[in-house]
């Protein structure tokens, strides 16, 4: 389990390096998918199966579909992958930076726990699952604010993308 979790943590960092090293948006979205999937693994390994499920469903299922769609709209004819010259230089620089930072921290690392023991407390529902119930019962104000923000975002998006006839010439 320790090896698997270490692999997941390294995968998170590598995925973010793949996003940050400025490839074409196609490949950056792929890196983000890798990071999000690995993040699900990390959360599940720490015992947060419900939070992991939310991340998987909402983040991967909802957001990245939208991003893939926009990447298809706003793409360039010759996308630059990680094999491209500038991208590979950035990747090397970032990886070196991560390794150096990790080496600086090496002495100070102590072993956190990787896996939560399932029998720490005899609970009927797990902590993260009951958190959702908590949001609906006691966290009413926060829920109302979040719902208001989602409604507000709807208006924001509608207002920002208005103006079909305005603007300069365009192909679409």
């Amino acid at each position: 389990m320790t090896y698997l979790m270490s692999l997941f943590l390294i995968g998170l960092i590598v995925g973010m390096v793949a996003v940050a090293s400025n490839p074409a948006p196609y490949f950056a979205a792929l890196g983000l998918v890798v990071s999000a999937g690995v993040g699900c693994g990390i959360l599940a390994g720490h015992g947060g199966s419900f939070l992991s499920l939310i991340l998987f469903l909402i983040y991967l299922g909802g957001m990245l579909v939208v991003f893939a769609y926009s990447a298809a709209l706003a793409a360039e004819p010759y996308p630059e992958a990680w094999g491209g010259w500038s991208v590979i230089v950035y990747m090397l620089v970032y990886m070196t930076g991560v390794v150096v930072a990790g080496a600086c921290m090496w002495g100070g690392w102590y072993e956190g726990f990787w896996v939560m023991e399932s029998f720490k407390e005899f609970m009927v529902v797990r902590g993260d699952t009951s958190g959702a119930a908590f949001m609906y019962s006691f966290g009413g104000g926060m829920l109302v604010i979040s719902a208001w923000v989602l409604l507000l975002t709807l208006f924001v998006v509608l207002e920002l993308t208005r103006g079909l006839s305005r603007g300069t010439l365009r192909a679409v």
Binding site: M142, I145, L152, V156, G163, G167, T168
Partner: peptide, 26 residues
Amino acid sequence: LAWMGLEINTLAILPLMAQQHHPRAV
């Protein structure tokens, strides 16, 4: 909660800024 307030502020002013839809406003 403070972060939420800042985010709401940012989101709410975006359409007001892009009200005219000319290139400089966007």
